[in-house]
Design a protein around this nucleic acid. Structure first.
Lengths: 353, 353
DNA sequence: CTGAAAGCGCTTACAG
DNA sequence: CTGAAAGCGCTTACAG
């Protein structure tokens, strides 16, 4: 590997001059001609700076630790990592990811490793939105919580705007002319459940519609969801259903088929997730709200770097279409999802067909 | 951060003694009592070694670069990364992953970054099995190709045993008593297609069955697969189908339903992938062969570390059940998949019901 | 405008 | 058995 010393020798100057020039700090310190000469020599030798040596001296590694629970299980959650990677690259950082597999002792070990490698800050990320206790080893470091909320309301946390998702999804159905809109939710204690439900209620209320309790049904995936879906369609006779997620939407599809209801005609459906394997399989295409995972990872790195470098949040954007919008209040940031329009919502209001 | 110097001062010995003791190289160099004293002081100060300083001196970073194309798209391919992470952790390495998004210039940039951070070696990984040209920047470094084959047959490459998968899947159907076994394959140029087909043919041949060309149909997902599946079942009237993957299996399921054939009774189905969103949705449960992604990542790191440290391949195993078996010939390694039994294959041979 | 020197935290011959 | 010293590749006051 070629070092500053090699360049200095070849160019006939001191190591210090080379360092100054290559870091662009040579104003009034090195003549422009010498600087140019140094730059050319460096290029001709294919010089690459040694980040480790630099870190040793400056105490800045430009390395971010990405600690996650088991991000694998939801393919879309992997996008948090990809978004974080893109932002890191654009800001001159690298990401070191570690998977804790929900093992607290492994987590401690991994955070210690990351510190040994001198990570400047941490992303603490989760597979789905929840409230988390952040390990104390992270509290002393710049840290941003992703797809989760710090239980202490202390660290910046980025997570989806679940209320907004429920509100938007329901409104989409209202806009399509639906008059009896059901909510097909989750039976688990997941944080998104009550928030999406609240958004649903607010949308109904704003439209002057009452929320008939018959229209609200909760179910568990791969267990009672198929039967509950049939019951919901039979008993409450909705003309629109906001589904907690795509998996539950597929139960509603099955129920509608069973009862001879035409999706996108007799009944409109909007859900959340946009999981390829599911949306690929459903006919007609499922209109669904994609959670902004990529954007959350990207935004989290921007906020983290701002903390580390004690500067304003960098003004960069993902190369991918930036579909979502951000709301920032205090240190918390919620991220809107974006609706993917397909054909499960009827195109014209009732009576226009 | 507490350094060797702090420990030396506190313990009243030299920095060198501390380094020796903490690295376990103090035999015949430091007395046992001093060593013990040093260890206690280090522990009481919560000393953590600074990996960067160590790297600077030893030229070994214990860091592996993980360069991948767009591993996100197949959720199961993420498991390559997780397997690699586990092996790295067990061998005292960390993984730095970079996503090239199939952009060659980005790839070059990322490899350069990884070198700047002094990666000791590289994993060059792909979303699905193919033949790849390895960038020249990687050829000068210890590198292992994962879920792909080096076009030059030069670097160690780990990939699934596609022939074995085709052979095993077909044999599973033969064992179930099927007499007319179809292959529902891929129309794309994907490398796995001819190899799985060859395995299918070999299994038929070994069982003394002829391979009727009517029984071999290729289709494209989300395009003509549904119609082709119906044609296949109608025209060739198979009693067993080996499907190239789960997505194609779902087309066969749909076709069987349409034609009133009972899966697992009138017709048996085996496929490849074990994608949760698909297998969750299909009834009866789909018997399918899971590709050994986790194991490939794990194995690749083992081989890479052996290259870097110029030693025998470390004898470690994943914590997860290690379902697959490995064949090693030359520098190439193929990995068998493992069959996940569900209910799409009839339990008893024909006539036993 | 330029260079000599110290030092980041570590390891490793070398001398005693 | 133990310590003083050099050096990995860099940055940054400091002196000229």
């Amino acid at each position: 590997m070629v070092s500053l010393k090699d360049i200095a020798k070849q160019a006939g100057v001191s190591v210090c001059a080379v360092s100054l020039v290559l870091n662009g700090k040579y104003k009034n310190r090195v003549s422009d001609t010498t600087a140019q000469h140094i730059r050319e020599t460096a290029a001709s030798l294919h010089y690459e700076p040694n980040m480790l040596a630099r870190t040793l001296k400056t105490n800045k590694s430009h390395t971010l630790g990405f600690v996650t629970d088991e991000i694998i299980t939801t393919p879309s959650a992997v996008r948090i990592m990809l978004g974080a990677q893109e932002a890191a690259r654009k800001l001159g950082y690298i990401l070191i990811s570690m998977n804790t597999n929900n093992d607290k002792s492994l987590e401690r070990q991994e955070i210690a490793t990351l510190k040994r490698y001198h990570a400047d800050g941490f992303l603490y990320a989760f597979m789905y939105h929840r409230v988390v206790d952040v390990p104390s080893a992270l509290r002393s470091m710049p840290t941003v919580v992703v797809d989760a909320e710090d239980a202490n309301h202390d660290l910046p946390s980025i997570y989806p705007d679940e209320f907004g998702i429920g509100y938007d999804a329901t409104n989409r159905l209202i806009k399509a002319g639906c008059r009896r809109i059901a909510y097909f939710g989750s039976e688990s204690g997941i944080i998104a459940q009550p928030q999406r439900l609240a958004g649903y209620r607010k949308a109904l209320h704003d439209a002057g519609m009452n929320d008939d309790p018959q229209l609200i049904v909760r179910a568990t995936e791969h267990q009672n969801a198929d039967e509950r879906a049939v019951e919901l369609l039979k008993v409450a006779a909705p003309d629109g259903v906001f589904c907690f997620n795509d998996v539950r939407a597929s139960s509603i599809y099955a129920a509608a088929n069973e009862l001879g209801m035409r999706i996108g005609k007799d009944i409109s459906i909007v859900s959340v997730d946009n999981l390829p394997n599911i949306t690929d399989a459903l006919r007609p295409g499922l209109t669904t709200i994609e959670l902004p995972h990529y954007e959350m990872g990207f935004e989290a790195v921007c906020q983290l770097v701002a903390m580390i470098e004690q500067r304003d949040k960098p003004d960069i954007k993902p190369d991918q279409m930036f579909r979502s919008s951000f709301d920032t209040k205090d240190t918390f940031t919620t991220v809107h999802g974006s609706i993917i329009e397909r054909d499960s919502v009827q195109h014209a209001p009732h009576g226009n067909e």
